[in-house]
């Protein structure tokens, strides 16, 4: 059985439109125009145990809505989701004890108390035994290196330290599934990397199934072999990150530097699409199959080549192109 199975899952939100102005507000008291947005439109996917999958998409693409349906906060408008054999929106205790949800923008820790108090509360809520609690806590605290801050009031912690504590709070009951919604949002690069390293290590050691949403490309690049790209509520790509580049960027880039007097634009145009040009450095897009041939042709031509490099297209570039469509 798959850990997570999603079939034709849709979510429609209702909202009301209000024209600007006082008169329209008064009218709105009596009659409002009801509108619908389809945040998620019949998506399908399944996730195996132990996978670390990245959900990628611009703001409002439907990533968080999907996570909320999987964790049982929202019920689907149609279609179904099955997680560990449970239907999430029934919110059975047996299911709730087996997953955790961490939202980067909402904290679950008690603001005015040291994080330790929230940990103990979660221990009671998830009915973790004393031994397991101690063992898991030591392990997590060691991995995240936060021994010193456990007894400091949460509001005095930095955002990065707080996020670490949020993760500990969420993982104390050893969930089988972890939903991470923008866990690195607002963090500086060092803190982002710390969190990322931890997630990676934790996934490898514990075999926890993890779904991660982020709009930081670095998170996805470093953590996820598999990526699901969502835009306007539909999945536009589901597969290996490496294949994504091949699919959406059927070309590589030749970066060539020239010496002597350099080259004229007309001299290199025939080799492919010019991305960047100046006299001494040119970037050319060339189809994957032809890239070797073209490189050889350039090298054996009478152009004053100093150096030539064949580069893979930058993934950020690929994603940007996908979302622009």
């Amino acid at each position: 059985m798959k850990t997570i199975e999603v079939k034709n899952l849709s979510k429609v939100y209702e909202y009301y439109k209000k024209q600007p102005g006082l008169w329209a507000s008064v009218k709105g008291l009596f009659k409002r125009e009801k509108l619908f947005t389809e945040a998620v439109k019949g998506i399908n996917f399944s996730i195996e145990e132990g996978e670390l999958v990245g959900f990628l998409g611009p703001n409002g693409a439907g990533k968080t809505t999907t996570l909320k349906m999987l964790s049982g906060i929202l019920y689907p408008s149609s279609g179904e989701a099955t997680v560990l054999g449970f239907t999430p929106h029934k919110r059975q205790k047996e299911y709730q004890k087996q997953f955790a949800l961490v939202m980067g923008q909402k904290n679950q820790l008690w603001w005015d108390l040291p994080a330790m108090e929230s940990f103990i509360l979660n221990k009671e809520i998830y009915e973790v035994s004393d031994e397991d609690f101690k063992k898991n806590l030591d392990e997590l605290v060691g991995l995240l290196d936060i021994k010193d801050i456990l007894d400091v009031q949460v509001r005095k912690l930095s955002l990065g330290q707080r996020m670490k504590c949020e993760l500990v709070a969420a993982l104390l009951h050893k969930p089988k599934i972890l939903f991470l919604d923008e866990p690195t949002i607002g963090l500086d690069v060092v803190a982002q990397k710390n969190i990322r390293d931890f997630i990676k290590k934790y996934n490898q050691e514990q075999k926890t199934t993890i779904i991660l949403t982020s709009h930081y490309m670095d998170d996805i690049k470093e953590l996820c072999k598999r990526v699901v790209i969502i835009d306007h509520g539909t999945i536009i790509y589901d597969g290996a990150l490496d294949d994504l580049i091949k699919k959406y960027a059927p070309y590589k880039v030749l970066n060539i530097t020239f010496n002597d007097k350099g080259v004229e634009k007309t001299q290199v145009e025939k080799y492919g699409i010019i991305q960047k040009y100046n006299q001494y450095a040119v970037s050319i897009e060339v189809n994957r199959e032809e890239v070797k041939k073209v490189a050889t042709a350039i090298l054996s031509s009478d152009l004053p080549v100093d150096d030539i490099m064949i580069d893979e297209v930058d993934i950020d570039e690929v994603i940007r192109k996908i979302f622009k469509k």
Partner: peptide, 12 residues
């Protein structure tokens, strides 16, 4: 503020 979401996903 949606803090309720954090609560209702817990067995409590």
């Amino acid at each position: 503020q949606g803090t309720l979401s954090n609560m209702i996903v817990k067995p409590m």
